[in-house]
């Protein structure tokens, strides 16, 4: 069972990142629910989705204790870091490295925005983040996540090659900023 929150500014692709993980889970035969936050958010406000992945029947689709938080802006870290379980994983864009973090969580960092821009695919930052998640080993492996991403874009009739390239770079360039505490 993994309870995941993907969060960032609207347009940073965090809802899509959640959908790609949901599709990956479905392909792997897992039970999965995905639910977006929606509501009276301002333009430029934070968008997030809740994802539950399990071998068992899923009850509430709403996440209360987070296993994995993928955060692309400081507001998302502030809002959701307190809900991370001890020993949980935080995946961040490297631009957020300077913030102060809880000591009892793992942190994986990748320069997602920079990599995506240099690749000529500025909207591929979310794919970089998924690369970092795959590199952490906390949820799905490299091949599994890539497969889910390709299936997702195929279902939309879109070419996924550029995003897969961002995903691969994210996987290669991700670094572990903070390891799991010894007691976890």
């Amino acid at each position: 069972m993994s309870d995941v929150v993907c969060s960032g500014f609207g347009g940073q692709g965090m809802l899509t990142a959640g959908l790609i993980l949901a599709r990956t889970a479905m392909i792997l035969g897992k039970n999965v629910t995905w639910i977006p936050s929606y509501g009276s958010e301002m333009r430029g406000g934070t968008a997030n989705c809740n994802l539950k992945i399990s071998d068992f029947k899923i009850g509430s689709p709403f996440v209360t204790d987070i296993d994995i938080l993928i955060a692309m802006n400081a507001q998302s870290v502030d809002k959701f870091m307190p809900m991370l379980r001890r020993g949980g994983l935080l995946v961040i864009d490297a631009a957020l490295c300077g913030a102060s973090f809880r000591g009892d969580i793992r942190i994986e960092s990748v320069d997602a925005t920079g990599i995506a821009e240099r690749s000529g695919n500025p909207r591929g930052a979310n794919a970089c983040m998924l690369g970092a998640l795959a590199a952490s080993g906390a949820l799905f492996g490299r091949d599994e996540t890539r497969g889910g991403m390709t299936a997702f874009f195929d279902s939309k009739g879109k070419d996924s090659a550029k995003n897969v390239s961002c995903f691969e770079k994210g996987f290669e360039l991700a670094r572990n900023l903070q390891g799991a505490p010894a007691w976890t």
Binding site: M26, N31, V32, T33, W34, I35, I58, P61, F62
Partner: peptide
């Protein structure tokens, strides 16, 4: 809204 907005297989 939860059941309608939720995605699942």
């Amino acid at each position: 809204a939860s059941i309608s907005q939720m995605m699942a297989p």
